[in-house]
């Protein structure tokens, strides 16, 4: 099979070097970066066009005041950011995004992990269990939030009807912040925990059985095996699960939009929902841009923090050590 990278690199090489031997030398010395450029180049370019550009545009609008569609934007330095941290509507929304996001991620991971441990047992009919738990993941948000609303209706809601039948006063879910957050979290868990469990399961099954056998020979009990073999083994998948979970959870807004609409009294409003309303209904692109940057920064800081704290040892290890010497 012809080496594709040679062919594609030839034209460029002939300009820089005298002949194919020069190119071959150049290629051998910089093989990795060339292949990386060939693979990542088009991807990054594509990303630039499709989302990098519009996103940069949106972020830059954070430095502008753009009140009306027909007016031209006015540069206002950091006014929008200052406003963000002065107006409780914004910083409280950010705070809610963070703590609801952390709560959802944490619970999701914990429950998902316990479920994955059980799914990892050799049970009869485990394929059926996996499918059952995964079902909510494939449902559409619009349809299932409607179902939650039907459950929570105060006049003919399924839950209130049950409460009434048991002889208690029905609960007015929509007028309580606590219940609002509770149902947002319950919905997010219902929707997310199955996917998380399957992810953990993949991680658990990726742990080499030989390691367990070795631990058994060393006389480790169940708990010790879990602590010394399972946990280190699932670390890579844990990093992925935490990061995707957090990114997803901090950006939740559909459940808020469809279940509580930010109510009561705007106290379940999360930041992405605010951005959406700013951008489209108030046409306040400046605040939408600034809020996005802040939210992005928060998620980014969390991620970097996580990498520094927990992922440093195995993420930073270089799998290719010693390779060059052998070539």
């Amino acid at each position: 099979m012809a080496n594709e990278w040679d062919v594609s690199g030839n034209a460029a090489a002939s300009r820089t070097f005298d002949g194919p031997t020069g190119w071959r030398k150049f290629y051998n010395n910089h093989r990795d970066v060339i292949i990386a450029a060939i693979i990542l180049g088009p991807m990054l370019f594509w990303w630039m066009v499709v989302s990098g550009f519009p996103t940069a545009f949106g972020f830059l609008l954070g430095f502008f005041k753009w009140g009306e569609i027909t007016a031209s934007p006015k540069f206002v330095w950091f006014d929008n950011y200052i406003h963000f941290f002065r107006d409780p509507q914004y910083y409280m929304a950010l705070w809610r995004s963070i703590w609801i996001g952390l709560l959802v991620t944490g619970l999701n991971m914990l429950i998902g992990f316990l479920i994955a441990l059980l799914m990892n047992l050799s049970l009869f009919g485990k394929a059926i269990y996996r499918t059952m738990w995964y079902v909510p993941v494939v449902t559409s948000v619009v349809a299932t939030t409607q179902i939650f609303n039907i459950f929570l209706d105060i006049n003919n809601g399924v839950i209130d009807n049950l409460i009434k039948r048991l002889g208690y006063e029905p609960i007015l879910w929509q007028y309580s912040v606590g219940w609002g957050v509770f149902w947002i979290v319950v919905y997010s868990l219902w929707k997310g925990v199955g996917g998380m469990a399957l992810l953990w399961l993949a991680g658990l099954q990726a742990v080499d059985p030989i390691l367990y056998e070795a631990a058994e020979i060393d006389g480790a009990n169940r708990l010790q095996k879990f602590w010394n073999v399972t946990l280190p083994g699932i670390k890579p998948i844990a990093t992925y699960a935490i990061i995707t979970g957090l990114i997803g959870a901090v950006q939740i807004y559909e459940q808020v939009m469809f279940i509580t609409l930010g109510g009561p009294y705007g106290q379940t409003e999360v930041l992405v929902f605010r951005i959406l309303r700013d951008g489209f209904f108030d046409f306040n692109m400046g605040m939408a841009g600034a809020s996005s940057v802040v939210l992005f920064a928060v998620v980014f800081i969390f991620t970097v923090f996580y990498f520094r704290m927990f992922a440093s040892d195995n993420e930073k290890s270089d799998p290719r050590r010693g390779r060059r010497k052998r070539q």
């Binding site: 609303n149 209706d153 105060i154 006049n155 003919n156 029905p170 929509q174 509580t260």
Partner: peptide, 20 residues
């Protein structure tokens, strides 16, 4: 009014008793 129906965020809380 039925408790909590008038100010409910969801119109369904109002339609349901009316239609029933």
């Amino acid at each position: 009014a039925p408790k909590g129906a008038m100010a409910n965020g969801s119109e369904a809380a109002y339609w349901d008793p009316v239609n029933k």
